[in-house]
Amino acid sequence: MVPRARPAAGRGDVSIGVSVRPSIDGADHAPRRTAVAREKHRNGRTNGALPSAPDFGREEIARLLEVAVRRRVEPGRPVLVEGQPAEGLVLVVSGRLAVHRPVPDGSSVFLYELKSGQVCAASLLAALTGRRLPLSLSARTVSDVAVVDAGVIRLRFENDASFRKAALELLARRLEMLLLDLEQVTAWSREARLCDLLLARGPVVRASHRELARELGCSREWISRLLGALQAEGLVSCGYERIEVRDADRLAERLAASRTGPLGSGESLRSDS
């Protein structure tokens, strides 16, 4: 049996916003509906337990947990460090882990979040290839983490067709997600990404301006200016580490109008100077 995970401690965290892609006929999907759908696909879980559709099937997770080393990780503590050899595959039993990549100035770029039942794809890839880790992983909340030795993972991959298929599907999903996020970074204005994030995580987003700035790759001052403008228009209301979406339909319209890139609407708000 797969043990039920404890509910994650602490308040909710905010992930990178989600993409809205054009349909085959060229018409855009409704931004709010698409944002929420992808957020559910990425982060779906139930009351802190393993989600109904984790990265691996429940039977596979049970087999991995039988041979895994479990450890409790406190918030802010590292699980994996970029540039080091991988101990093995990392599975989140409960809690939340942040996947990020350090940059030369000593800070880091947030990539995405792992929740209960999800596997760190970078740890899987490093375990299979013997390459050093390309990114870092740290706890956002008190987390129960399982690590399966790299040698065990390589043997399973070589000898178990079902595990091999599940592992390749996991790597494909993570690649698709990162490509969608790259699309946002390169083609969307920061205003559009903030609007999309609010729609995906709303109606109430519990995060500080500093946290939002770090996850969107901009300054805290810029976040404060744009949220102030959105609040003045009646689209959101802001409190201490709390943002409430007041008019989702108009915010979705703002997203559609501002997601055309650096030359889109709201240009005066996108300067960090």
Rank of each mutant, 00 (worst) to 15 (best):
V2P: 15
R4F: 06
A5R: 13
A5T: 13
A8P: 03
A9Q: 10
R11L: 15
G12K: 05
R21H: 08
P22W: 02
P22G: 02
G26W: 00
H29N: 03
P31C: 00
R32C: 00
A35T: 01
V36H: 00
G44L: 05
P51L: 04
P54T: 06
D55S: 12
D55I: 07
G57K: 10
G57S: 15
I61N: 12
L64W: 05
A68G: 08
R71V: 07
E74N: 09
E74F: 09
P75E: 03
P75A: 06
V79H: 00
L80D: 09
V81H: 08
G83S: 09
E87M: 08
S94C: 06
P104G: 01
S107L: 02
V109P: 01
E113P: 00
G117V: 01
C120A: 14
A121L: 04
A122D: 14
L128F: 10
L133Y: 00
R140A: 04
R140S: 01
V147I: 15
V148W: 07
R154F: 07
F163S: 03
A167V: 04
L170G: 03
A172M: 11
L175G: 13
L178V: 13
L179C: 09
D181P: 04
A187D: 13
L194D: 02
L197C: 12
G202T: 03
P203V: 05
R206I: 12
H209T: 09
R210E: 15
R210N: 12
E211F: 04
R214P: 02
R220M: 10
I223C: 11
S224Q: 13
S224I: 06
L227P: 02
L227C: 10
G228L: 06
Q231A: 15
G234D: 06
E241M: 10
E241G: 08
V245R: 04
D247T: 05
A248H: 05
A252K: 02
A252R: 02
A257R: 14
A257L: 15
D272W: 08
